[in-house]
Each structure stands twice: as structure tokens, then as C-alpha cells.
Amino acid sequence: MYQPVNTQAANLVNYLLHLGDNALILSQRNSEWCGHGPVLEQDIAITNISLDLIGQARSFYQYAASLEGGDATEDSLAYLRGERTYLNCLMNELPNGDWGQTIMRQFFFSVYQQLLYNALLQSRDETVAAIAEKSLKEVTYHVRWSSEWVIRLGDGTDESHARMEKALNMLWSYTGEFFMPAGYETAAVAEGIGADVAALQQRWMEQVAAVLQEATLPVPVAGKTWMQSGGKEGKHSEHLGFLLAEMQYLQRAYPGATW
């Protein structure tokens, strides 16, 4: 039922899966905070973001399933694919670490997502543009919320500053993948459907640097760090398999189970 990665015919489907997977996998990670947030209000905030991201993933999966036809559904795309056919960026599947690491990742990703969806407003594919438009309002809040927390913790106590700096160092080498286009992204750009991610990097860097400076955190020099990649092509870290095992368990054990 699922097309292999990078076949010509499946470019748009892969592109949609990539967008959906980024949202779903980060959503699944953030949802692990449910009941464990540092305070009640932030527990609700991070799980709200999870729900926003699930909503976005559903939109992309529904569209992908309609293009794929057959018996593909949003659920089959989420629950019945293995990790080699998941096309999310590596950063999104990393374990949460502490609250600081979760915040830093959300910040990096949300700034990227905001630039990406803004670019997708110009997509020739009306459905893609519509999903981007609807999601932008949510993402704008995610950027605001996560920036606020990066600043608050970076410019906070010695302990919070040290943790944010550690998170920054730990996550930085995963930021480069956002801007390295996979084959299906390049193809989607050529058709006027997708966004040119490489072109977003400059603005992402500026926006991130401004917040890091305000947070009194060191701003990494662009181009100086070796960057991780592979997630967009289905080559994942060891963490994704465990994440999927938990997320997909019920549908794998009881196929077709419903509420």
C-alpha cells in the first residue's frame, strides 16, 4: 500500500508525508510530557502544542491518503508505516531530555515551521496552501511561546542557563537537516508546490540568533558545525523505532481497533 521513498510518482505523497511526519513525531514526543510538565500550566501548554501538531499531521495525511488512493487512510499512514518510511527530520524524534531541551527543540522547529508554512502559502497546490494558512496561526503561537521560554530560561538562573546551553549544544547539529532538501522536496519546488528550504536558512538563523542573544546564550556560527542528516530519507536514529513501537502498538496488536 505504501510507495517506496523517492519514486518519481510518489514525490508529492512523500512531500506530504514528510510534512505530516515532522508534525506527528514531534507531537508524539511532546505528548510524553502529559502529566509530567514542570507546572500544570506548562503541562497544558506543551500538550496543546501536541494537539495542534497532530491536527496538522492529520491534514497532510488525509491529503496524502486521497492521492495515494486504495485503502490508504490517515490512520494507516500514521500507524502502519515502519521507521524506514517515516520522513521526519531527526531532531523531532530525539528523546525529550529535560524541559530545557524540549523547549529548545520546539523553538528551533517552530521558527523553521513558521518560515516553511509562510513559503507554502504561495504553493500552486491549493490544499497545501490552505493547510499552511490554517496551521500558521498555531505555529505563530508556538514560536512566541517557545521563544519566551528560551529567553526566560537562558537568561534565568545559573542552573537554567547551563541547561539551555547544554540543550543548544546537543541539538544544534540537528538543525542543518531542515535546510538540506530531499529529492521529493526539490521535485516539489520544481512543480511550484513545495518550499525551497535552503532559501529559508538565512532568515531562520537571524531569527534564532536574535532570541539566543536575548537569552544570553552563545550564538553558533553558521556553517561551522557538521550537521546530522538522513531522517528525511528514512534513515533514522535508534530512537524512532521505540517511539513508533509505543505509538503504533494498539493498531499493530489489534488491527482496526476503534474507540
Binding site: 500544570l40 500550566e41 501548554a45 496543546n48 526566560r152
Partner: peptide
Amino acid sequence: SLQAADAQMAIENARDVYTR
């Protein structure tokens, strides 16, 4: 009511807790 470190955080927390 809710807990927050300052007014801005209180407003954002209120947005997440009470306007969902």
C-alpha cells in the same frame, strides 16, 4: 486562577488553560 512568574507568562498560561 493560575500560577505564573510574571504578567506575560500569566497571560500566556491563561490562554493555554482557559481559552482552549
